[in-house]
């Protein structure tokens, strides 16, 4: 599963995709909307993306993960639209035979997602808003 959606995300649904009787570990990363960034109080975030290219880039990350960690299974989902504080913007689940690989692969996947998946976020705060680009992103 490499999914871009406007609907709320479900950890259970993403984890179900990587369920594997040969796996001894399942690690899930959930990115959630934080109420502050760079010292500013954030009201909500707007996510925008290029869905076909974003899903393609996520599938590429899935291929990179399975090349580095044979036997790993990966699923990821990213939500677009307006997200309020505490809501999940991204979920990545990885299952592997042993836990060290699951942690490492999951971290790799979220780092790569932030590098290559064409999704942008705008912070909206009291009296202003700003598209987060490049090194200005604190998350």
């Amino acid at each position: 599963m490499f999914l871009i959606t406007n609907e709320p995300l479900s950890v259970t649904e993403v984890e179900a995709v990587v369920a594997d009787p040969g796996a001894g570990a399942l690690v899930t990363f959930t990115g959630v909307v934080r109420d502050n960034n760079l010292g500013k109080s954030v009201h909500y975030l707007e996510y925008e993306g290029h869905p076909p290219m974003a899903e393609k880039a996520m599938a590429q990350i899935g291929d990179e993960v399975t090349a580095r960690w044979p036997g790993a299974r990966v699923a990821m989902a990213h939500r677009l639209g307006r997200l309020d504080i505490g809501e999940a913007s991204v979920i990545i689940s990885v299952s592997t035979p042993h836990r060290a690989d699951a942690f490492a692969a999951c971290q790799y996947a979220i780092d790569r997602l932030k590098e290559i998946v064409p999704v942008w976020k705008k912070e909206v705060w009291e009296g202003g808003e700003y598209w987060i680009e490049g090194s200005t992103a604190a998350s």
């Binding site: 290029h50 290219m53 880039a57 590429q60 990179e64 090349a67 580095r68 790799y108 780092d111 790569r112 932030k114 590098e115 290559i116 998946v117 064409p118 999704v119 942008w120 976020k121 598209w131 987060i132 680009e133 490049g134 992103a137 998350s139």
Partner: peptide
């Protein structure tokens, strides 16, 4: 023709062939 701003957390949108982040 799509024009894509830099993504939130990254340096480049071009996938690196080596897969190195």
């Amino acid at each position: 023709i799509a024009y894509l701003p830099p993504v939130s957390g990254g340096r480049s949108l071009i996938p690196s062939p080596s897969g190195e982040g």
